[in-house]
Amino acid sequence: MADTKTFNLQVVTPDRIFFQGEAEMIELKTTEGDIGVLKDHIPLTAIVAPGVLRIINGGEVKEAALLSGFIEILQDKVIVLAESCEWPDEIDINRANEAKIRAERRLKATDAGQINITRAEMALHRSLIRIELAEKSKH
């Protein structure tokens, strides 16, 4: 019999079902701020912002880099449709560092009027999330 404190969680990316299982709580960032979800949360649909997804179940905490999408919260089920989601061991830290350097270079460019500042800032933010999560998991 399933634990009454849990709900079904699905995290889906364009190329795979990233996670499917039970959770007692999840934490993630939306465009409106950080959110924590427990079973019987009010129904809600929100836009996911780049950040760390924490899946808590049975005292175990799993973290993943969640890079934008949508979340639909129902009474006993949560669905996250993500642009990208990666476990720390899936993150290519060299690639993330290269993306960080490229984004910083774009933001410092003297011809900044010719680049999309918001896009460069988002790329920098996504690379920093990946780097921080990958380095944290090594310790």
Results as ranks from 00 to 15, higher is better:
19 F>A: 13
19 F>Q: 10
19 F>W: 14
19 F>K: 11
19 F>D: 11
20 Q>M: 14
20 Q>L: 14
20 Q>H: 15
20 Q>C: 08
21 G>P: 09
22 E>G: 14
22 E>W: 11
23 A>K: 09
23 A>W: 10
23 A>E: 10
23 A>S: 13
23 A>T: 12
23 A>Q: 04
24 E>M: 06
24 E>F: 09
25 M>V: 05
25 M>C: 09
26 I>A: 02
26 I>H: 07
26 I>Q: 02
26 I>M: 06
27 E>M: 06
28 L>T: 12
28 L>P: 08
29 K>W: 08
29 K>H: 13
29 K>M: 15
29 K>F: 09
31 T>C: 04
31 T>K: 13
31 T>Q: 12
32 E>M: 15
32 E>K: 15
32 E>T: 14
33 G>V: 08
33 G>E: 13
34 D>I: 07
34 D>W: 07
34 D>P: 07
35 I>F: 07
35 I>M: 12
36 G>Q: 04
37 V>I: 15
37 V>N: 05
37 V>Y: 06
39 K>E: 00
39 K>C: 01
39 K>H: 07
40 D>R: 06
40 D>Y: 08
40 D>H: 05
41 H>G: 05
41 H>I: 08
42 I>P: 00
42 I>C: 01
42 I>M: 03
43 P>Y: 00
44 L>V: 03
44 L>I: 01
44 L>C: 05
46 A>K: 02
46 A>I: 04
46 A>M: 02
47 I>S: 10
48 V>S: 00
48 V>W: 00
48 V>A: 02
49 A>G: 04
49 A>S: 12
49 A>V: 01
49 A>Y: 04
49 A>E: 09
50 P>D: 06
50 P>Q: 01
50 P>S: 13
52 V>C: 02
53 L>Y: 05
54 R>T: 10
54 R>Q: 11
